[in-house]
Amino acid sequence: MAWHHRIRNVFAGARSRRELDRELAFHLTERADELEAAGMPRGDAMHHARLQFGNLTSQTERTRDMDIAAWLDAVLRNFRHSARALLKTPAFSITVVLTLASRSAPIAPSSPRSRPSSLRPLPFPDGDQLMDLHQSNAKNPSTPIAPSAWPNGTA
């Protein structure tokens, strides 16, 4: 299981983690509602809903492992498929590899070092200290509430 965890930490976006948290939180809220409707005080109902669900953290992990394991399977399947396809047509594969190699070899050295402009600070006073401020909804962080607006540029 450990390698799953490691791969997950590397590849899994925070977005899917948040979505899973939301999905499970919804489940607990609905269960608590039901218990409350049956006469349980709200606090107890929430507590009970959690107990009934089992170990929330480990279930969350297991669900995420399902996502990642299946994703990894798909990647490996695609990889094997491509490798087989390339091996079946060696002449084509070699041509592609040589073409890509001959085209990308001259480009490689011309990346960042020969274009220092991409590393220079922006042409503003204290350009290396520019900030971008956001405001977003904690429940749905991908949706900005308001665009950054600091007319005086001071905080």
Partner: peptide, 16 residues
């Protein structure tokens, strides 16, 4: 349904 085991199952079925 054991509630905790539902979601791993659902997510696996989604990936399948």
């Amino acid at each position: 349904v054991e509630e905790g085991s539902l979601y791993p199952a659902l997510h696996r079925m989604e990936q399948e």
